[in-house]
Amino acid sequence: MACGLLCALLFGAGPAQAADLSLAAAIEAAFANNPELAAVRQELGIAAGERRQAGLMPNPELSWEAEDTRRDSRTTTVMLSQALELGGKRGARIEAAERGQDAAQLELERQALELRADVVAAFHAAARAYAAVELAEQSRQLAQRGLQVAQGRVRAGQVSPIESTRAQVQLAETELQLRRARALRDDNLRQVARLTGLPAEGIDGLGGQALAPGSAPAAADLLGRLAQTPALRLAEMQIRQREADLGAQRAQRIPDLRVSVGSQYSEQERERVNVVGLSMPLPLFDRNQGNVLAASRRADQARDRRNAVELDLRTRTRSALEQWATAANEVESFSQVILPAARTAVDSASRGFEMGKFAFLDVLDAQRTLIDARTRYLEALAAGSEARVAIERIYGASQP
């Protein structure tokens, strides 16, 4: 199913069977179906709407008023007024809205990278869960074989019945581990289904995926690409967005000029005159100083957050690389030395017990050593996979 080379290392099994869902297909399905990513995509349309609104001029205003309600002496005035924005307000709004569009695009890129990393992590966890089920099944078969041998020797009067009891306890423990492994596999498949938007019952297996982490990249190479990461680019863009907002708030300090033209008609004098007017607020008290101060502090806050993001990315990179290197060494040790030796010890102890050279406790000890070694091997693979996913979450896929 999902173990490939992993199963061969653990069990000496042949190549994995063809699977229904590959990692590439899972990532593609997640990008197409994941509702959280779809919600982030909506931000692009929201930002486009805000950009369109920012470029619009104020609407003209039409007014009508009458002086004196008596018909014969009434004077009516019709006015058309237009506010003229001064101080570059419209350009500042457009600049801020365009920076918002850029930030929305980078946020989508960052969220897509996060989703891809989540899918890879869930897929690898499910693949390891498949391998864990096969591991538990292998352990149960070993325990069954041990029970059969112990019962045969008990019936022949060669060992005490307590050896059969020990073998039954070992078999019960492996059956419990098998049930737990199956439950964990099903739960991991549900996580894959949640991220990809595929029905969980429709996923029968996973494509063979190399779970060994491989060699970790050099820290200097990764850190040299730090400025190109979506997270840091987004933090930089948020600084520019806040600075654009500050420019828009500073432009608001200059009052707008309102120009009015119209016509006034007097019923009493039977005469129509043209009316022209100019008006402008006097910025005596409200000069938008509070909003300017707030926008300035938000720009400073964005710079501090950018520095915090860079520090966090550097720390996470170094920690993940260290974990990756440690896990890779452990995986190599288990695959080349520990697992083959533990398997040989089980075979030797089982044959020795059948021939009466070893006690059944020696068989149990060898079996438990092999089971523990396999479990720790899976844990080393998990640590390596987590570290690699942590790097890909920051820098993107390390391989095409």
Rank of each mutant, 00 (worst) to 15 (best):
D347T: 14
P161Y: 08
Q105H: 14
G88Q: 03
A122E: 01
A231R: 15
A38G: 14
V78Q: 11
E392T: 01
A359F: 10
G277T: 04
G356D: 03
S139K: 11
R253F: 06
L198P: 04
L21C: 00
M355A: 15
R153K: 15
D68P: 01
E267H: 11
L195H: 08
S73W: 02
E114A: 14
E61S: 11
G12H: 03
R90S: 01
L184Y: 06
L222I: 05
Q151H: 05
P15V: 00
D68E: 06
G224Q: 02
L364G: 02
R297F: 06
M79R: 15
Q141K: 15
G55W: 00
E173K: 15
V154P: 04
S335D: 11
R190M: 13
S160W: 03
G384V: 00
A248K: 15
T317G: 12
Y265E: 02
S139R: 14
R155N: 13
S348H: 10
Q141W: 08
A327K: 03
T165G: 09
Q209N: 09
D347Y: 02
P60S: 10
A328G: 11
G49K: 10
A219C: 03
A308E: 11
L147H: 09
A167L: 04
R116N: 05
A47M: 01
E134V: 12
A244F: 06
D204F: 07
P217E: 11
G152C: 03
G157M: 09
A19G: 15
E173C: 08
G146M: 10
E134K: 15
G224W: 01
L108F: 07
G87L: 05
R179V: 05
P213L: 11
W324V: 00
R93D: 02
A183Q: 13
L21M: 01
A302R: 03
V133F: 02
G207M: 07
M1I: 05
A129T: 07
F334P: 13
N188I: 00
R145P: 10
E201R: 15
